[in-house]
């Protein structure tokens, strides 16, 4: 059987979901039997590939760069997995959503800073008014809830997809 290609990426997230992925431990070998990991923070590739079978997308969409990225990922990916609560619900990054962006900057860069009290305006990606879940911008094929999803669930989902089945996640994954 031909191996599938797998990409993993995190946008506005804490990398906890990736940590959980690593927690599949020795089962990573089984994953490796089914997938070639062609893009990931764990591997040294800079450009997101043009074509990929499965993408695990961790994190919410919070900046203009994220929006570009998520569109690009969608275009390149066959099966897009919203990976973890931030991707599914925008979760912790959304805690700023009921504040005005100006206040968020003030709090983040001025009130809580110990030195260098400036709000950076260049060099950094432009923050969106809110942090959005992935499906706000593009279609998502599989929603993998959890903060983070357990290693078992991640492993299960990847195996099912590799076998050409739709993973039954409602009994295995939940928010939080």
């Amino acid at each position: 059987m031909k191996k599938l290609t797998l990409a993993t990426i995190w946008l506005d997230g804490c990398s906890g979901c990736h940590m959980s992925f690593v927690d599949v431990d020795e089962r990573i070998l089984q994953v490796a039997e089914k997938y070639d990991i062609i893009f990931s923070p764990l591997v040294d590739v800079k450009e997101f590939p043009e074509k990929v079978d499965v993408t695990l997308l961790e994190g919410a969409i919070s900046t203009d760069e994220d929006v570009e990225m998520v569109k690009k990922i969608r275009k390149s990916t066959k099966t897009l997995i919203a990976f973890g609560d931030c991707a599914v619900t925008s979760n912790v990054p959304s805690m700023r959503n009921h504040y005005d962006l100006k206040d968020v900057f003030k709090r983040g860069y001025l009130e809580t800073s110990t030195d260098n009290d400036v709000i950076p305006d260049e060099m950094l990606p432009k923050l969106l008014d809110k942090a959005y879940p992935v499906h706000h911008f593009v279609d998502v094929d599989v929603f993998l809830q959890g903060c983070p999803p357990s290693a078992d669930t991640i492993f299960y989902a990847l195996v099912e997809i590799a076998e050409g089945r739709t993973p039954e996640l409602s009994k295995r994954a939940r928010f939080g």
Binding site: V92, M95, P133, Q145, C147, L169, R174, F175, G176
Partner: peptide, 23 residues
């Protein structure tokens, strides 16, 4: 849910699982 004191004991959270609400 991730930062809620009732995480894991919440009826709303569990209901999402029960009715298979993925997002």
């Amino acid at each position: 849910c991730a930062v809620c004191a009732s995480n894991g004991f919440c009826e709303l959270q569990l209901m999402a699982q029960k009715v298979e609400m993925s997002h």
